[in-house]
């Protein structure tokens, strides 16, 4: 570029005008944000929300208290105990304490569970109003949706 052309570009503020036009284009473009909580973004199936336990088709717990998740958890979130029951060969979980404050949502427990009893859920609303709610006990691990919210913080205001 010749010296004259460069001088003219500098004098007429070409680079600044170019930047201004770019931002003007953004001013008139559709915005990328959505209005939460009226609209919630769709979550992908593998989203790592709150960990939940699941029941099998007969309504019995899938968890067999094998303690694999307890052993593999890097931050020692679990405290599980099982006992023998007559109706099935595998153990029945009687204590399943999970500490939410220690969980790093790494997913190792989900990967290692042999019966796929513990899985991530799409629940990302984890506000609590009382400190002890951060410790989940065995029945709390099955709560989902609105019941879970009622347990954690008294439910969403609508």
């Amino acid at each position: 570029m010749t010296g004259l052309a460069r001088f003219l570009k500098k004098f007429f503020l070409v680079d600044i005008l170019r930047g201004l036009l770019i931002t003007l284009r953004y001013y008139f473009s559709p915005k990328v944000t959505i209005q939460y909580p009226e609209r919630v973004r769709e979550l992908p199936p593998r989203y790592k929300g709150l960990l939940r336990l699941h029941l099998d088709a007969k309504g019995e717990p899938l968890c067999i208290a094998c303690l694999a998740c307890q052993r593999i958890c890097p931050t020692h979130c679990f405290d599980i105990a099982g006992e023998r029951v007559p109706q099935r060969k595998t153990l029945w979980p009687v204590r399943y304490d999970w500490k939410l404050e220690r969980c790093t949502f790494c997913g190792l427990c989900v990967e290692i569970c042999p019966t796929s009893a513990i899985r991530f859920s799409p629940e990302f609303r984890m506000t609590l109003l009382e400190k002890d709610k951060v410790r989940f006990h065995y029945p709390d691990m099955y709560l989902e949706g609105e019941e879970l919210q009622k347990h954690l913080c008294g439910g969403c205001l609508e």
């Binding site: 979550l43 992908p44 593998r46 989203y47 790592k48 949502f105 790494c106 997913g107 991530f120």
Partner: peptide
């Protein structure tokens, strides 16, 4: 997020 569920970690 679609791949492993996490965005940052």
């Amino acid at each position: 997020e679609a791949y492993s569920g996490g965005r940052l970690t």
